[in-house]
Write a protein that binds this DNA or RNA. Structure first.
Length: 487
DNA sequence: AAAAAAC
């Protein structure tokens, strides 16, 4: 079995890993680390929760340390781009943690917060800079930052970064980078059209794909509930009252929808907070922070939280609305069953969402066991997207598929499986380091239970204690996918 | 049609 000690990492990095309790690299780490150390460009494809961040952070830190150099004024040696502020923050913390025994500076830059502190930090130059595109370009335009000394360039959630919403920014940034550099792309999904674009930006890249593209997390028990739009509210409340529910992440398709669901839950006596792009950065951080610490059990989010967010103990992901971009489903359910834990993913599907569901099942190549909770009247209505009621029989390739009785059966309960304790005990890291929870795990797995200290307070300009960790959705989609609307 | 990301 490969150990971190077999991968060519030096003592300071290995010591940091040991201090965190990590010994065994995940498959993507075992494959990517030597490749990155060798200086090659890389396309890394792995589902979430498999330790992608450490797969690039560890070898990059190693390379910086092996080639000491003073960080260029108003410049950086490593540039990592992320689609959301919260994810950028989370990645920066990982770098900080893994490089704790080295004298490397880490900075994070994103919008929604004061630029002053960021500018001050950048002025002297930093070794590692993690950023979202907008504020990064802002600093560049203001002559506060230059990218001509970048040695390593990383695009996390690369498929999204190359999609409509971000591609313009990326196209502006790329020419500012030196030709001689290492480029790494990472993502859990990589649609064909995007992949072609990515290939054009990489130089003789190695590809590391540890799971079939878009394969959904293995340990997530997925199910679908057919319900009328008006019935979602009651079914959601019922799900959230499940005894074995640890923490639940509820996804909606719109920002307004997220706020509405929070109100409805409140009326039902269930405390929840929303996180989406119309909230202030402070609100976003507060919501995610209390979700991380466990003060809040239910977080309602748009796809801002679909990618990368790493929170321990999320036992349930509920798709209040089916994502209209199928890849988003894969990212969303990847928020649970992290770090070796198990998870439940339940999708509420109204009649007019059937087409989206079909696209998702096609993408993940499995059919999701379904329960019909529509009223009799609803069932009599035209089926809309067709192929509906048969879903009950379909049982797709999932082995332990749980099938539920066609009518009325309750959805999620009854399957004991998922440990009640969020993450089976991982929870305890409690406050204090609370927000530190869950992040920086090189591999998504904790050696055992030890480690309670993943702290890293002193990040200069890292949001205070309640740092974020978010993710984002995908931008407009390229032609081709979104078949849901055609037809 | 919607989401995120600069001010």
């Amino acid at each position: 079995m490969t150990k971190f000690t077999d991968l060519g990492l030096s003592a300071p990095v290995l010591d940091a890993l040991a201090a965190e309790g990590y010994e065994t690299p995940t498959p993507i780490q075992a494959q990517a680390i030597p490749t990155v150390l060798a200086g090659r460009d890389l396309m890394g494809i792995a589902q979430t929760g498999t330790g992608k961040t450490a797969a690039f952070a560890l070898p990059i830190i190693e390379r910086l340390a092996a080639n000491p150099r003073v960080a260029p004024r108003r410049g950086c040696r490593v540039l990592v781009l992320s689609p959301t502020r919260e994810l950028a923050s989370q990645i920066a913390e990982s770098f900080q943690s893994y490089s704790r025994n080295l004298k490397l500076s880490v900075a994070v830059v994103f919008g929604g917060v004061a630029a002053g502190p960021q500018v001050r930090k950048l002025s002297g130059g930093v070794d590692i800079l993690v950023a979202t595109p907008g504020r990064l370009l802002d600093h560049i335009d203001g002559k506060m930052l230059r990218l001509d000394q970048v040695e390593h360039f990383v695009l996390d959630e690369a498929d999204q970064m190359l999609d409509l919403g971000f591609i313009h920014a990326i196209r502006r940034i790329l020419p500012m980078l030196p030709h001689r550099r290492q480029t790494l792309f990472f993502s859990a999904t990589m649609p064909k059209a995007i992949k072609d674009l990515a290939d054009a930006m990489l130089r003789d890249p190695a590809t590391v794909a540890v799971t079939p593209v878009a394969k959904t997390a293995d340990r997530v028990e997925q199910s679908v509930i057919f319900v009328e739009q008006s019935g979602k509210r009651a079914v959601l409340a019922e799900i959230l009252r499940t005894p074995d529910l640890g923490r639940a992440l509820v996804f909606t398709r719109t920002k307004h929808g997220a706020d509405k669901v929070v109100r409805q839950l409140s009326e039902a006596g269930i405390e929840a907070a929303a996180i989406h792009g119309n909230k202030s950065q402070a609100q976003r951080e507060r919501a995610l922070g209390s979700f991380r610490t466990g003060h809040l059990r239910v977080l309602v989010a748009t796809d801002i939280a679909a990618r990368g967010i790493d929170v321990d103990g999320v036992t349930h992901v509920v798709n209040h609305d089916v994502p209209n971009v199928p890849e988003s489903y894969v990212h969303r359910i990847g928020r649970t069953a992290r770090a070796g834990a198990e998870g439940v993913a339940i999708s509420l599907v109204a009649n007019d969402e059937r087409a989206y569901l079909r696209d998702i099942e096609r993408l993940i190549r499995q059919s999701i066991p379904a329960t019909d909770r529509r009223s009799e009247a609803g069932k009599a209505e035209p089926e809309g997207a067709g192929a509906a009621s048969q879903k009950n029989q379909r049982q797709g390739g999932r082995p332990q598929g749980q099938q539920r009785p066609a009518g009325g059966g309750r959805p999620q309960q009854g399957r004991g499986g998922r440990g009640g304790a969020p993450g089976g005990g991982e929870q305890r890291r409690g406050h204090g380091g609370a927000e530190a929870q869950g992040r920086h795990r090189p591999d998504g797995r904790r050696a055992d239970g030890s480690r309670a200290d993943g702290e890293m307070s002193g990040m200069p300009f890292m949001q205070k204690p309640g740092r974020p960790a978010g993710q984002r959705p995908r931008g407009g989609r390229p032609e081709g996918r979104r078949s849901a609307d055609r037809s």
